[in-house]
Amino acid sequence: MLESRLEQADLLKKVVEAISGLVNDCNFDCNDSGIALQAMDNSHVALVSMMLKAEAFSPYRCDRNIALGINLSSLTKVLRAAQSSDILTLKAEDAPDVVNLVFESSEKDRISEYDLKLMDIDQEHLGIPETEYAASISMPSNEFQRICKDLMNISESVSIECTKEGVKFAAAGDIGTGSVTLKQHSNVDKPEQSVEIDLSEPVALSFSLKYLVNFTKATSLASKVKLSLSNEVPLLVEYELSGGNSSYLRFYLAPKIGD
């Protein structure tokens, strides 16, 4: 059986909010190392991969592999009943029909309990190859969100060019063009404001802004975002979850291909 307790319901609320624009139904795969999720969007352009490590919970118990097939809009409805600061416990039997969610207010004066019906989801998992990316950029997550939203006013796609000079996000549309260039800089007092660029070779790729803006729904989960790029492979956009236990929310986006 599964029994996992999260100190802050907010974490799951925000994860579900961040992915529900891309994915309708998906399996939450639970095993002794934690809760994982992998799903493509309907048009097979983007892939979401989440890992919530057992260490993110206290306590965490899962004796055998359990797949919780969940409709995300139903889960969103149930999670609306949880206050952000509530303690959230997820429970399921070994071959479950439902997942049980308990929300406890931090003052412990109220306990809410919901059973969410599960679905059978026959989901194919993709093998994500280990990639040595040519460029990786670590930057404030809100800055990335702002750039994507601003450039979406200009065009439906953005080119991301990374050179030793910096990273340039550029869009060209009917009304004109726009670009934002970021150079590497460190902010000692506010490290979350730093921009770090790790480059082994220059990269230039184009991506759909609609998807990138969708990914940035995860902004409130982490102060930083990491973009990893190599020519002719999907972009990786990564948010760290729940600090320091290597839990993550990753989005992969297939590039646009010139003809």
Binding site: M40, V233, G258
Partner: peptide
């Protein structure tokens, strides 16, 4: 003009 690639052409089925 550019075409949107599919994620499945990069990541194979397991």
């Amino acid at each position: 003009p550019s075409k949107q690639g599919s994620i499945m052409s990069f990541f194979g089925k397991k």
